[in-house]
């Protein structure tokens, strides 16, 4: 059984009384514990697809199954948004408490430790850097013990050095927890570094143009030759498909 399965999913938006198709017959089969990236140009519908998987949007046609069940409530989902979306009037600790029903102090400390935020419990979001805000947002997703972690370009607005560090940390977290990760990005290099498998989304309406398994041993080196070679090959291929 797949952890998440999309069968012929179609998504449309209402646009001035006519329906506009955004995503057309997308099929995905994601196994438990996999790290999957969805790449594509900006505005092609990647976030929309992620929101459909999160259960925020209902597809026009097709099915999404979570461990064979149609309801997203049958799995626990953590979401890391493009921007951290923290409550500005709440401290780091309170932001984590916001999403959990029972508050266990040990658990909070454990999660903060995992993302490297120990000691920042009492800070307000504006008092910490963008990179740390991204870490809080990851911690908030982790504290619900997600089966599936959805990430929507969480590092795209961060500087390169911070982003590189966070990517490495996310891989370590994933290896430790063995949760399923679906990661959306427009950065192919990032996708090759992170993923077991990359889905390339493109066209209007968007369809899956290509699926690539990234057979590089872990641990991978972000600036290493292997990742770069893979990236170069995939990049050329995608460029040819798109044009």
């Amino acid at each position: 059984m797949f952890e998440v399965e999309l069968r012929d999913v179609v998504v449309s938006y209402d646009h001035r009384q006519s329906k506009q198709k955004i995503i057309d017959s997308v099929n995905m089969q994601i196994i438990k514990g996999e790290f999957v990236c969805i790449v594509g140009q900006s505005g092609c519908g990647k976030t929309t697809l992620l929101n459909v998987i999160a259960g925020l949007l209902k597809p026009e046609a097709g099915h999404i199954l979570y461990r064979g069940q149609p309801s997203p409530d049958s799995v626990k989902i953590g979401y890391v948004f493009q921007f951290p979306r923290l409550l500005p009037w709440r401290t780091v600790r309170q932001n984590l408490q916001f999403v959990t029903k029972e508050v266990n102090s040990d658990k909070l400390t454990y999660v903060l430790e995992m993302v490297g935020l120990r000691g920042y419990e009492k800070y307000y979001p504006h008092q910490i850097s963008g990179g740390m805000q991204a870490r809080v947002s990851i911690a908030r997703a982790l504290i619900v013990d997600p089966d599936i972690l959805l990430m929507d370009e969480p590092f795209s607005h961060l500087d390169q050095i911070t982003a590189k560090k966070l990517r490495e940390d996310v891989v370590k977290l994933w290896e430790k927890t063995k949760m399923t990760v679906i990661f959306v990005t427009h950065d192919l290099h990032e996708a090759v570094f992170l993923a077991d498998r990359v889905y390339v989304l493109g066209g209007r309406p968007a369809t899956i143009r290509h699926i690539e398994n990234i057979n590089i041993m872990r641990p991978r080196e972000y600036d290493g030759d292997e990742v770069f070679k893979f990236y170069k090959r995939l990049s050329n291929m995608i460029y040819n498909i798109q044009s």
Binding site: G55, D73, F81, L87, F98, V99, R140
Partner: peptide
């Protein structure tokens, strides 16, 4: 609205 959407994803 983004905060409200966030809360909905986490089933608050």
């Amino acid at each position: 609205r983004d905060l409200v959407e966030m809360a909905k994803v986490f089933k608050i």
